[in-house]
Design a protein around this nucleic acid. Sequence first.
DNA 1: AAAAGTTAAACAAATGTTTGATTAATATTA
DNA 2: TAATATTAATCAAACATTTGTTTAACTTTT
Lengths: 209, 209
Amino acid sequence: MDLNEKQLQIIDTAERLFADKGFEGTSVRDIAEEAKINVAMISYYFGSKEKLLETLFAVRAEGTVQKLESMLKDTLMNPLQKVNVMIDYFIDKFQKQNCFYKILMREQVAVQRTATSELIQHFKKRNQKLVKQLIHEGQKTGEFSKNVDVPMLMTTLIGTAGHLMATQHFYKEINNLQEMPDEQFQKLIKKKLSSHLKFLFKATLTHEV
Amino acid sequence: MDLNEKQLQIIDTAERLFADKGFEGTSVRDIAEEAKINVAMISYYFGSKEKLLETLFAVRAEGTVQKLESMLKDTLMNPLQKVNVMIDYFIDKFQKQNCFYKILMREQVAVQRTATSELIQHFKKRNQKLVKQLIHEGQKTGEFSKNVDVPMLMTTLIGTAGHLMATQHFYKEINNLQEMPDEQFQKLIKKKLSSHLKFLFKATLTHEV
DNA sequence: AAAAGTTAAACAAATGTTTGATTAATATTA
DNA sequence: TAATATTAATCAAACATTTGTTTAACTTTT
């Protein structure tokens, strides 16, 4: 997928607005105004508003799984270390691509757009397969216990990290962290999430249930 | 809040449609048609589409926290039993009020509607306070370890259960359970979620980190 | 008779998309 | 290289629908 400067600019703007106001809550004129382009350019470049969303998904999803796959091929790490790398990888994704993952979290709830929903499913499958392999590795060496419910564990990873990252404003308010500078706050929740999830995974993977 | 038959009928329909298509993705005419009433009735009874959503939230949230509060007052249960009751309570809520919680999960991401967003925050605060007290109880008796990150634990409960319940269709597809009758499937994920979350909570609350 | 409920129609504003003209960039030819 | 032709990019305006809401007439209930 090769996109020019202007197309990327439209996608960036759309991403931010979709995350804040939702897909239906954002008009093409909102996007055009914010991106300082003419409304017609959206149809011209992407065909339609819906196809803009599809392109956005395709662009952001590109290379995501491959990178994780290659990271986990490292043979110097033991299975638990790899699990920890994976956890940090997801947290980092959610944090750095916050807008995109807000859209993703919303799109997963409603199954309106067939194309995007199929893309989501595809990536969820790949992720789960990858994690399954990883856990299998640890089970072979005896480091991980048998009978690990991988789908449920993935749900906890994505559910916990995704929920916190997509609703940080509530976390801030509820825990009275409104005054904290955002940079510091991001570091805080990243650290908290990381150790929390690593503990949960270790407990699930190494203890008998 | 006292609402007549027709108002409840409108709210029920709106809830289903908002869950499936999102708030902005649902038109008042969609609701009117599905609920077999005239469009004007929505403005007549609720004032506006937005106020309909606010009413929906108020109605569904009513009595939610109180019920949990009274359940946990039971002095015959030890802290861990209470935690387990709470977990099952939330799972049950998410499952039985699936449509409402789909809307809730989506509304939490975007902070567009001030009124609903404040209501959400209020209930999140109350929930967290309740769980904090509960865990404090267990810490006093020495059953729970010190330094439990309650906000993070709540995020895992709400994040995991909410994510799975709001995206069950993906869970079905990814794990090849399309053929399973829905009643059986609901029982399955409820059971899986329950034991999974109870294990995670027990591990977090009773083990040294 | 007064109040509440219900309706089809009308309202203005907003929606996504297309049009047709104009400008800018690139390729082709002399 | 300079002139020309071709393609791509940009724009304001128009398009037909759809949007949430209101009106004013009506029926039903109290």
